[in-house]
Simulated assay, not measured.
Amino acid sequence: MADLSRVMVVGRSRITQVVVAKIVEGLGLRPLVESPESAMQTLRSVLPGIVVLDGGPENRDCETLMPALAALRRETAGLRPALVLLSTRMAPSGNPLLSSPVDAVVAKPITPEQLQPVLSRLAT
């Protein structure tokens, strides 16, 4: 069962991880910060309510996680975890992150005014 108070923040940029974690905390939710490489192991023990994926400059930094996230969503009838992609730009069609079940795309640079409403909507 998903822990709706948990938001997993996945990305390679430490700065983005810290900014997003602070926004998550400001909403009264609990951030769980992971690199794309460590996130898979954590997903085996914790099912967060929301996963925020930092796509990186080419929107591909987290694409190796998509099969596992898609499988988790199938197990929960498509509800959890909700997926948010942080993007520097819209990627060309065929990008695995954008063709997957992403619930929201938020443009970088990330601000609380952009991300808070998205997280609030998906946390309910």
Results as ranks from 00 to 15, higher is better:
A2K: 08
D3W: 06
R14A: 14
R14H: 02
V20R: 09
A21R: 09
A21H: 10
I23T: 04
I23G: 03
G26S: 15
G26Q: 04
G26D: 03
L29S: 05
R30L: 11
E37V: 15
E37D: 14
E37G: 14
M40K: 14
T42W: 02
G49C: 04
G49Q: 08
G49P: 07
I50S: 00
V52W: 06
E58G: 09
N59V: 15
N59A: 14
N59M: 13
N59H: 05
R60N: 06
C62G: 11
T64A: 15
P67K: 05
L69H: 01
L69Q: 04
A71K: 15
A71G: 07
R74F: 11
A77D: 14
A77V: 03
L79A: 12
A82H: 13
V84W: 02
L85Y: 00
T88S: 12
R89I: 05
A91S: 15
S93W: 09
S93Y: 01
S93I: 11
G94W: 10
G94K: 11
G94Q: 10
P96W: 01
L98C: 12
L98Q: 11
P101E: 00
V105C: 11
V106N: 11
A107K: 01
A107C: 07
K108H: 06
K108L: 15
I110K: 13
I110H: 10
P112Y: 00
L115H: 05
L115R: 08
Q116N: 07
V118H: 07
L119R: 09
A123H: 05
